[in-house]
Computed example of a mutant assay.
Amino acid sequence: MNVRKLLSGGLVVFLFIQLLLAGPPAAQAQTAQPSLSAEGAALIDVASGRILYSKNGTKKMRIASLTKTMTAIVAIEMGKLDDQVTVPPEAVGVEGSSIYLKRSEKLTLEELLYGLMLRSGNDAAVTIATHIGGSVPGFTYMMNEKAAMIGMEHTNFTNPHGLDDSNQHYSTAEDMAKLSAYALRNPVFRQIVSTKVKDISWEGEQWDRRLLNKNKMLHLYNGADGVKTGYTKLAKRCLAASATREGRQLATITLNASDDWNDSAKLLDYGFANFPVKQLVGEGQDIQPETPVTMEAGAHLVTQNAFRYPLQSAEEAAIKQRVVMGQSTITPQMEGQLVGFLQVYMKENMIGQVPLVVRADAPTASQPASGEHLFWKQFWDIVAGGLWRA
């Protein structure tokens, strides 16, 4: 009997130890990539721009009203929020989602942007495009110019709203993730897309328009703060979502996703759990140049700012740094000057670079003053001596 008890107790201890070594089941499950309904999807870290997940991420697809992210950011950057905008005839009665604009009605650009992003107003999109670009084709040209600037290499816009009008209006999950990250760095855009309810004017009516944001992620996911819903018969359900936790923002894109809300939540959970942000370079960090550089006494190379990057734990060993200098001699008199860069690599790919500036040691009492400082020192010595003799 005692032997049985001893064996049973030993088995319990053994199993307990195995559980400790195995770690929490939830932590193990977090390392697996999410299973999604979306045909195309991407997850991006907003600050760094790193794509953390991609499913058919470079496949050209229809994007429906996710198009309006580009419409909004171009309008914010090129227009003035308090501009009085007159609704043109071609904007009235545009098919699909609407905020029921009337011909010649006047609203501010800011009000139209809320109508565009919260209620996905296609009439607002045409009104904004005409105001900013002079015409829909003119504004579309601006949209494509901005896409090229952001690095959206597989994207082409033919309208400001995303309605299915041709096979030439397309993008990819990764390109749209880049666009979301770019737009979310703009404080005006962030404020608009994170708003759940907004009242805007309604000319000729006794009440204002009340806009309820169509993006249910703002209510369903902790920390959600954007971005845009989308749907057409050909594109199916599309969603751009974002969330911020502990100061860090991630954004997702799902295209042709029958379960887009859950897809987006899975992607955000995956990103927050598996890609913690690591500080790879500190602000004001002393750097020793690798190339032959003459460093005069009292002069130092320091980083102008910190550099942080989302990394999985297994990736940290692949991080390397390289110093690139633009000056061969560094003197204390060059204090504050930009003289090079500290480049950060993951394997062979550069993921960022930090400016290097000169910092000089503070002069000590034993160090002779020079130039202007010497002049004022001699001046005050004479004045002080005269006063003392008086």
Rank of each mutant, 00 (worst) to 15 (best):
F307G: 07
G284K: 05
I287E: 00
A297K: 15
A299S: 14
E296M: 11
P292V: 11
G282P: 01
P289K: 08
P289T: 02
N305G: 04
A297H: 10
H300D: 05
V302P: 00
P289R: 00
P292S: 12
L301C: 12
Q285W: 03
Y270D: 07
V281S: 05
G284M: 07
F275K: 06
A297N: 12
G284H: 05
Q304E: 14
H300T: 00
A297L: 10
A299D: 11
E296T: 11
E283V: 08
T303E: 01
P289H: 09
P289S: 09
Q288K: 15
N305L: 03
E290A: 14
E283M: 10
K278R: 14
F275D: 10
P289I: 00
Q304V: 03
G282K: 15
V302F: 08
V281M: 06
G298V: 06
I287T: 02
E283R: 13
T291Q: 14
V281Q: 04
K278P: 02
P292F: 11
Q285N: 00
N305H: 13
I287C: 07
Q288D: 09
G271H: 07
P289F: 00
V281E: 04
A306N: 10
P292I: 07
A306Q: 07
G271V: 09
N274R: 09
T291P: 04
G298M: 02
F307D: 02
D286M: 14
E283C: 06
P276L: 04
M295D: 03
Y270W: 04
L301T: 03
A306P: 00
E283L: 04
H300N: 11
P276T: 01
G284W: 00
G271L: 04
Q285A: 02
G298I: 04
V277Q: 04
V293G: 09
A297M: 10
M295R: 06
L301R: 03
G284E: 03
L280V: 05
A273Y: 05
G284D: 08
Q279V: 12
